[in-house]
């Protein structure tokens, strides 16, 4: 693996809150163009890891490189430029409640670029359509949306600036299985058409099986292993075994196996 292929490189990361150490000496590489799933038990710091990478959480030690540049010593301007290259979907969408969906999508565009109002409206409509929202969702306020629609709207805002990295924090949490599957498909499809790198935190085993190229497992304050699901199935750590071979893990594995064969059938 050459350096060019690594888009996010985390080395020796340490995060702590008071005396409680969340991460210690954590290493992680995210490759360009892959969907990497982050799993781990509750409280293992999945969200903290994401927040460290996107600069919302100052790490106690360690380095984080994105596009080959360390995030620690950036000028304000460079930091802003770097932030432009990623989009973040927070767990509950984190839409601005005082703005409509379309206006939410326009916020990053207005912040970074000057363009005609007519073009802004067109781009907002285009992004809203791209994440599969109905056209009448545009003028609605976030409080009028269902959970699934809110996630899609959050995704549209995250995609507004055409980022190269997309961070998703539990995109399917709190959705019904149909909505969750639709979000999984959408992430896959967007990643393929736009060539995104996706950093995906999830608890959802179906999402892991159907969407992720590789999965990183957080345990014992670090990333204990990264690999495809097949590789993880053979990994001897008890938590990994329990996670993927427990009743839920087995069920998801069977479903994914079935889906895979039918997928190959269509492809061939």
């Amino acid at each position: 693996m050459t350096d060019r292929d690594v888009i996010i490189r985390v080395r020796g990361l340490r995060n702590q809150f008071g005396a409680q150490v969340v991460h210690d000496n954590l290493d992680l590489d995210v490759r360009r163009g892959e969907i990497i799933g982050i799993v781990g038990g509750s409280g293992t710091g999945k969200s903290v890891l994401m927040r460290s990478i996107i600069g919302l959480q100052e790490p106690a030690a360690g380095t984080i490189e994105i596009h080959g540049r360390s995030t620690a010593s950036l000028s304000e301007r460079d930091a802003k430029e770097l932030r432009r290259t990623w989009g973040v979907l927070f767990q509950n969408g984190a839409l601005f409640t005082s703005l409509t969906v379309a206006e939410n999508v326009q916020v990053p565009l207005r912040e970074y670029y000057r363009m005609d109002d007519h073009l802004l409206d067109e781009i907002a409509a285009f992004k809203i359509a791209m994440v599969g929202l109905d056209r009448d969702a545009g003028p609605k306020y976030p409080s009028d949306l269902s959970g699934g629609m809110r996630k899609r709207a959050g995704l549209a805002r995250a995609l507004a600036l055409d980022p190269s990295i997309l961070f998703l924090d539990e995109p399917t949490a709190g959705l019904d299985p149909i909505g969750a599957t639709a979000i999984d498909d959408l992430v896959r499809q967007l990643q393929q058409t736009l060539g995104l790198t996706v950093f995906l935190i999830t608890h959802d085993l179906d999402t892991l099986h159907s969407v992720c190229d590789r999965v990183a497992v957080l345990a014992d304050k670090r990333v204990i292993t990264v690999g495809t699901i097949d590789e993880l199935l053979a990994y001897p750590h008890p938590w990994v075994q329990e996670y993927f071979k427990g009743p839920r893990g087995r069920a998801a594995l069977q479903i994914a196996g079935g889906a895979d064969t039918s997928g190959h059938g269509e492809g061939g």
Binding site: T100, A102, E122, A124, D136, G138, P139
Partner: peptide, 12 residues
Amino acid sequence: ARINDAPCEVRP
């Protein structure tokens, strides 16, 4: 872009 050409209102 062609597939997702669905103009929508921005404000109510």
